[in-house]
Write a protein that binds this DNA or RNA. Structure first.
Lengths: 231, 231
DNA sequence: ATAATAGTGTCTTTCAGACATTATGAT
DNA sequence: ATCATAATGTCTGAAAGACACTATTAT
């Protein structure tokens, strides 16, 4: 137990982002191989201690994300705070977990940090890939939150590139939710929400060209009037 | 700045519950007059440092609630964590805020703690009553959360006594939400939810007797299929 | 009988799901 | 012409709001 821990007023504190992205329409999370004890060699979330020159928590997380992903305009929201006696062998510790959503193609990893890797979220949740500290259970909670909020918000839009088709966005929803949504219902829902703009560009392929949309400039998240219904 | 704060790994940490109750169908929160610096003499949330003999955060909060209200089976849920350089003059500090809902009549304040008082939530939010640290803004966030979740959950049931009428529960919803809900819609909604039991007892008055309900034994919260709609 | 409130039933509105039909572009 | 996907429109269903009408108790 470190020296400072003898003071009853203070605890070990860190912030940990669960960074989601889509790879081949499947959800992955960003992890780094830990270089130091405890849990050296295990996968860990790309978080850590807060830099006390930051003025607040969200700013501290923004800096962590910049360090690890090279991106500045990442969407993130606070998820939940975990605190326990036995979470870290060094003593009573607290960590505030965040959910972040990024588009993989827009990322440019900075060279400074240890090369992070994308792990399929299913493999983490099933325990096929094991993680340091309570990170497996944090990832699990984060994915449950993402699933629930995807039923009634536009959260998955944050996984899209600048321009995207309804088909791609719908695939993201379906991948997260684990059930299929009819194309017509989905289009109507998005049209009614009025949160996307038709750029006028089309995506061509071996079919009728699909319109490319981008998000409108609205602050925060959009809440749909009802939830999507499984099956 | 205290000595331990020189160590970059640790921060000042506390848990702070925003405890809501109904008095004359109006929402109040529990506050204590601070006896020590900083903010001595100001109203503060009845929280504080975590006792490191607790094994986790929720347990730490449960103990705080027992200390301050004398109640053991209080409904609470984690709300949000605030961390900043300038929240506490003693240095970088973090606090995890909780929302708790109690029925005032069921409370028995322990004699040990400083006598807490119920403040009308409107007076705190408007700034008519000022609070220590960031507590005013925490109360504001907590009330916004309570409002939002009352649109689609059974959260306000936790403000009721053991047995209660639909009229009383509806008054709680209306007080929180700030708009009226028609009696018929409300009854249908509650009946469909199937989360309450008709005890068979009636509340008599100068009118047709109203059935007294109590909550069924279901774990966690109930989510209604849709939100209540203002006006 | 009157007042106050509870219970029942009908109608409307909103929005998601299902499904059929038409439209468009690549091959 | 065929295929794959987009767009449109119609029908159904769930659940909320509005409102009328009936039921039950105290006074």
């Amino acid at each position: 137990m470190v020296d400072a821990m003898k003071n009853i007023d203070v605890v070990l504190f860190s912030v940990d982002p669960v960074i989601f992205t889509l790879i081949n329409d499947r959800i992955h999370i960003l992890a780094v191989k830990r270089a130091s004890e405890p849990f050296s060699g295990h996968w860990g979330l790309p978080g850590g201690r807060v830099d006390k020159s930051c003025s607040n928590l969200d700013e501290a997380l923004g800096i962590k994300l910049l360090e690890k992903t090279g991106l500045q305009d990442v969407y993130f929201e606070q998820m939940q705070t975990y605190g326990a006696m036995d979470m870290d062998p060094r003593g009573w510790s607290v960590t505030t977990a965040y959910i972040a959503l990024v588009n993989k193609e827009s990322l440019q990893f900075s060279t400074a940090s240890a090369a992070p890797e994308w792990l399929p979220v299913d493999d983490v949740i099933s325990g096929k890939i094991s993680m340091a500290f309570w990170h497996q259970s944090i990832v699990n909670d984060a994915f449950v939150r993402l699933k629930n909020k995807s039923l009634y918000t536009d959260l998955p839009v944050n996984l899209m590139p600048e321009k995207f088709t309804y088909a791609k966005l719908r695939a993201a929803y379906e991948s997260i939710l684990g059930f299929s949504v009819t194309r017509q219902s989905f289009s109507k829902r998005m049209d009614d929400a009025n949160i996307l703009i038709d750029t006028g560009d089309k995506q061509f392929g071996s079919n009728r060209p699909a319109p490319l949309y981008k998000r409108k400039d609205y602050g925060g998240s959009y809440y749909f009037p009802r939830e999507l219904q499984p099956k």
